[in-house]
Design a binder for these strands. Structure first.
Length: 509
RNA sequence: GCCGCGUUGGUCAAGGGGUUAAGACGCCUCCCUUUCACGGAGGAAUCACGGGUUCGAAUCCCGUACGUGGUACCA
């Protein structure tokens, strides 16, 4: 029972990486790391019709951004290679044949049209099951009905065929799910799933069992959408390798759309204006770009955090967790059974918390890129980071820094004159004219000097300093936001401060 | 239709026979700050429904409703 923990994430490289997928990765990763095990990524590319160029590389880029590196994968190697199912194609047939030999599977020669016909007639009869199962398999074109010679003849002639699992009726299949406990199925409701397709590729059902066995997977975590096909997998384990060898299962709850009902999909993100994919994904066929969490300005720390607690918590009031803490505290039995609606507002809150929590140097590189893209030049790295640290309380998404810190690097393009003009007066104008003089004469340029000069002069002019601070802020910042105004003056320097006041005076006057 | 799984404020959720049913997001009010945030104090808002079991049910059991997933030679 002291089997080494080995878990796997098995994506199908068909497009963008959905946040639910990332959460599955996360839970796998956390479980593996907590128990000193291995995290494997196996590419499930058995459907050649759904091959999408670039999708596989993209998935690994997403994992890298999240900091969830596999121990074994297509990219990272490992002793159970290859990790791409298309490259393991030859391995699967023998298991399928073995099942046929043992009477647990059979060859089926039905064409798609014939199957369609079968369903139509079943529907016409008012049957509530349209499945290819024990009820109808002896009426179909397969080796259950055919004589062995007939079957052999078709096989020899190279007739296209699949191999289907033969589900015995009137049985009960049950297993223990780490999250849901005992789950039971009646085999009468399970259909004869295709195991090996006509093109020789396995379906997911065969491949997942064979590969989990070959790769010595100890725990299999996947989305709840797989629950209905679990009995097929259990049976396969039973017939092929024995249920004692079977990994422990956990079916993770789904992530639902925020409004209405149903699984969260890319479409919902487009419709509601938030990302669903981890990173930007461009469909190579249509050229359509779908925005990712990374690109709209999320921090990987926040992304992991918010995903981890969407369906899990440690039982305390803690909400902010680093990856290390998650590894330490994660446990599958505290994962929820029910699906959770995704709340983008809360997601943003997590990012805000992480921006505040982390030193700006942690993400200054990314912010710098955003600045450059906005046409703002950053020359002094240390100054840049100190500015970011000063304003980070005001930023929820990385691009917010452009608004919140841009004026430290270039004078505001526009001034919020409406905030000043109604109360503007000759006296205030005089104050600033004279303030410029005094600032120019200032020996030391620091917050205290700038502020004291301001207050002394205001007192001398008999104007409340408060009435002058907002204009001063608009002059330097352009709007009603930002940290203490004298701190800003200190940081942008004497020359720049005076220049901005002068410029504003022209506009206000 | 059939099968599986689920259901605590608008959302994420703690609690698993006796609690004033935590906390967070969002919303509202106030304090701090003559900016915006941060921070702090407060507020509105919840156990899907119906039956049991029990002295006592959000908690256990059974139904119902609702939701959700599956029902492919897709994963």
């Amino acid at each position: 029972m002291s089997k080494k923990v080995r878990v796997r994430f098995a994506p199908s490289p068909t497009g963008g990486l959905h946040l639910g997928g990332v959460r599955t990765v996360l839970y796998n990763y956390l479980y593996a790391k907590k128990h000193g095990g291995d995290f494997i990524v196996r590419v499930e590319d058995t459907d050649q019709t759904r091959f999408v160029p670039g999708a596989e590389e993209y998935i690994f880029q997403c994992l890298e951004w999240c900091g969830l590196q596999p121990d074994e994968s297509v990219l990272h190697g490992g002793e159970y290679a290859p990790y791409r199912q298309s490259e393991r194609k030859e391995m699967y047939r023998q298991y399928a044949e073995q099942l046929v030999k043992n009477g647990h599977a059979y060859y089926a020669f039905d064409t798609p049209e014939e199957i369609e016909e079968m369903r139509e007639s079943l529907k016409a009869k008012g049957s509530h099951s349209l499945q290819y199962d024990y009820n109808i398999r002896h009426k179909m074109n397969n080796s259950v009905r055919l004589l062995p010679e007939e079957t052999q003849k078709l096989l020899d002639a190279g007739t296209p065929h699949v191999i289907r699992i033969k589900i015995e009726p009137n049985q009960t299949v049950s297993f223990t799910d780490m999250i849901r406990g005992e789950i039971t199925f009646d085999t009468n409701t399970v259909d004869d799933k295709v195991l090996l397709k006509a093109d020789g590729m396995p379906t997911y059902h065969l491949a997942v069992v064979v590969d989990d066995h070959l790769m010595k997977i100890s725990h299999a975590f996947r989305g709840e959408e797989w629950l209905p096909s679990a009995p097929v997998h259990i049976l396969l384990w039973k017939y092929l390798f024995g249920v004692n060898e079977m990994p422990e299962w956990a079916h993770l709850p789904l992530i639902l759309k925020p409004d209405g009902n149903g699984k969260l999909s890319k479409r919902d993100g487009d419709r509601l204006g938030f990302p669903v994919y981890a990173m930007d994904w461009t469909d190579p066929k249509t050229g359509d770009l779908t925005k990712g969490f990374k690109e709209i300005g999320f921090l990987p720390e926040a992304f992991n955090n918010l995903l981890a607690v969407l369906g899990w918590n440690d039982g305390t009031e803690q909400e902010i967790f680093s990856l290390e803490e998650l590894i330490e505290k994660f446990s599958m039995d505290r994962v929820h059974k029910g699906g959770a609606k995704f709340d983008f507002e809360k997601a943003k809150w997590y990012n805000h918390e992480w921006i505040k929590k982390l030193p700006a140097s942690n993400y200054s590189g990314r912010v710098k890129d955003i600045f450059i893209a906005s046409g703002i030049e950053v020359k002094d790295e240390a100054y840049f980071i100190s500015v970011l640290d000063l304003v980070k309380d005001r930023c929820t998404l990385l691009p917010d820094f452009v608004q919140q810190a841009g004026y430290f690097f270039s004078a505001p393009q526009t001034l919020d004159t409406e905030a000043v003009k109604p109360k503007w007066s000759e006296a205030k104008n005089d104050f600033f004219e004279e303030y410029i003089q005094q600032l120019t004469a200032l020996a030391t340029w620091d917050v205290a000097s700038i502020e004291n000069t301001f207050k002394d002069l205001a007192a001398a002019k008999n104007i409340k300093p408060g009435e002058l601070q907002l204009p001063m802020r608009i002059m330097l910042v352009g709007g009603k936001f930002g940290p203490a105004v004298f701190t800003i003056a200190e940081m942008i320097g004497k020359e720049e401060t005076i220049a901005r006041i002068k410029n504003a005076l022209v506009i206000f006057g």
